[in-house]
Simulated assay, not measured.
Amino acid sequence: MDYALDIGAVTRNLDKLWEGLFVTLQLTIAANVIGVIAGFLLALIVLSPYKVLSWLATLFVEFFRCAPAIVQIVWFFYCVPMLFNVWLDPITMGVMALGLNLTAFNAEAYRASIQAVPKEHLDAGIALGLSPVQRVRHIVQPQALRASVPVLLTNGIGTFQQSALVAIVGVADLMYQGKLVATETYRPIETFTVVALVYLAISLPVAQIVGWIERRHGTA
């Protein structure tokens, strides 16, 4: 194989990759905000005594956890506009697809953490005269969030990596821009290697933080 590496083909197009990375970070941050907040609310519904609501919430969780993310993204981009006559910009659609997917995974993390809250703490809240909403806010939420942090961060990394899937529907994220640069320069090895290193450079530190938090909890 006679192939001479030319990293200059990538460095001359770094502006495009930076633009793509900015879109990727937009998608990731917005999806994580949705996933962290909506995931907790969904977990409460799953654990609620109202069977119909609990069943519907569980169905939502299982669908988004079991259906491939790429199918969910394609469905949102092509089916939502046709079925509901809702036309949104690509980034918003990407945020919705990634955010709802992350919501399902975070809901499972929260559910396990909520069920791990000692019953004595809830009994103490009742003894103090706290309403159900106050017990959730002051007792359940702080403990569940603290216990779920490692999983939430891990899920957040997964969303950052899965955001590359929106490239197939034309969202100009890092992967999409990398594909354009590779096509224009005929340098796929150099381009996709740099793209992979960018994903690694962002994911690895977060993974190290997750490991540190888990070790700290393990020794606490």
Results as ranks from 00 to 15, higher is better:
residue 2 D to P: 11
residue 4 A to L: 12
residue 4 A to W: 15
residue 5 L to P: 11
residue 9 A to M: 15
residue 11 T to E: 05
residue 13 N to K: 04
residue 15 D to R: 09
residue 16 K to F: 15
residue 18 W to V: 15
residue 26 Q to R: 07
residue 26 Q to C: 12
residue 33 V to T: 12
residue 33 V to G: 02
residue 34 I to H: 07
residue 35 G to P: 02
residue 37 I to N: 11
residue 39 G to S: 08
residue 40 F to G: 04
residue 41 L to H: 10
residue 42 L to E: 11
residue 44 L to V: 14
residue 45 I to Y: 03
residue 46 V to Q: 10
residue 46 V to E: 14
residue 47 L to C: 03
residue 57 A to L: 15
residue 60 F to A: 07
residue 60 F to G: 08
residue 62 E to Q: 15
residue 62 E to C: 01
residue 68 P to G: 07
residue 73 I to D: 01
residue 77 F to A: 06
residue 79 C to Q: 14
residue 83 L to R: 01
residue 83 L to K: 01
residue 89 D to I: 05
residue 91 I to A: 05
residue 95 V to A: 01
residue 98 L to R: 05
residue 98 L to I: 06
residue 101 N to E: 06
residue 102 L to C: 04
residue 103 T to G: 04
residue 105 F to Y: 15
residue 114 I to K: 12
residue 117 V to K: 10
residue 118 P to T: 02
residue 118 P to M: 01
residue 118 P to Q: 13
residue 120 E to H: 02
residue 121 H to T: 01
residue 129 G to V: 02
residue 129 G to E: 09
residue 130 L to Y: 09
residue 130 L to N: 14
residue 133 V to P: 00
residue 133 V to K: 13
residue 133 V to A: 04
residue 134 Q to L: 09
residue 136 V to P: 11
residue 139 I to D: 03
residue 143 Q to H: 11
residue 145 L to S: 00
residue 147 A to P: 02
residue 154 T to R: 03
residue 159 T to P: 02
residue 159 T to Y: 05
residue 162 Q to I: 00
residue 163 S to V: 11
residue 167 A to L: 11
residue 168 I to Q: 12
residue 169 V to W: 03
residue 170 G to E: 05
residue 171 V to G: 10
residue 172 A to F: 10
residue 175 M to R: 05
residue 179 K to S: 14
residue 182 A to M: 06
residue 184 E to N: 14
residue 185 T to I: 12
residue 186 Y to M: 03
residue 191 T to M: 06
residue 194 V to Y: 14
residue 200 L to F: 14
residue 201 A to L: 11
residue 205 P to F: 13
residue 206 V to W: 09
residue 213 I to T: 07
residue 214 E to Q: 15
residue 216 R to D: 11
residue 218 G to T: 08
residue 219 T to G: 04
residue 219 T to V: 15
